[in-house]
């Protein structure tokens, strides 16, 4: 029996990417090894990096103050490499809930959260998050009381945003590492809040 592959023609952007990459390699501008290394580095960045920052801010009030004043410097303090990132950290409080969107494209703090989820890049999320944030958050299972102000941050230019969620009750005495384990990607985008499993 001869081997049967399933032939699938390239989609438009796949074809564009492959053509451009092959040309750049052919002309000696980049190498395949460099491309592979960059892809590997991109995949290695995960939301755990952002969670470390949040957990530190929860246990160290002075660090939190520095983080809110200058997000970039505060990340570097933790030894996180964040080349070119201008980070604005926005803090959730009992009065304010923050959420991040990029209506123009899909700007996202990749060096802290990794590759963005598909829904973040969807037309649905991008157009509705600024227009009806409360309805969108409810679809994520997050109901924000009317007494709490919602601040939507449209990431349109050079800044990138990270939500500093509130530390949940029931985490008293937890280590920084354990605290970081409940800080999910969605909490740092602002479409979820950290939860503590009961019992």
């Amino acid at each position: 029996m001869s081997e049967q592959g399933t032939y699938k023609p390239y989609a438009y952007y796949e074809l564009m990417e492959t053509s451009l990459r092959e040309l750049l390699v052919e002309k000696g501008i980049i190498t395949n090894e460099q491309v592979n290394a960059e892809v590997a580095a991109m995949r290695a960045r995960t939301p755990e990096r952002g969670a470390r920052v949040v957990a530190r801010a929860w246990v160290d009030a002075a660090y939190k103050k520095r983080l809110l004043a200058n997000g970039t410097a505060a990340c570097e303090e933790l030894g996180l490499e964040i080349p070119g990132l201008h980070l604005v950290v926005v803090e959730n409080t009992p009065q304010v809930h923050n959420a991040i969107v990029c209506t123009l494209c899909s700007c996202y703090p990749r060096v802290l959260l990794g590759i963005p989820p598909d829904w973040y890049k969807s037309r649905n999320y991008r157009s509705r998050m600024v227009r009806e944030p409360r309805a969108v958050l409810a679809e994520f299972g997050l109901r924000i009381p009317e007494a709490v102000q919602i601040r939507v941050h449209d990431s349109t230019a050079d800044m990138r945003y990270l939500v500093l969620p509130m530390r949940p009750q029931g985490t008293e005495g937890w280590s920084e590492e354990r605290l970081a384990s409940i800080v999910t990607r969605d909490c740092m985008i602002g479409v979820a809040v950290p939860a503590v499993a009961l019992g």
Binding site: R131, R134, A135, A147, Q149, R151, V152, S155, D158
Partner: peptide
């Protein structure tokens, strides 16, 4: 938000912040 979208559903206090 109430300025940006006159039919916005949510409290007066809700805001959107944008880099310009």
């Amino acid at each position: 938000q109430k300025d940006v979208w006159p039919d916005y559903r949510g409290p007066e206090t809700d805001v959107v912040e944008i880099e310009i």
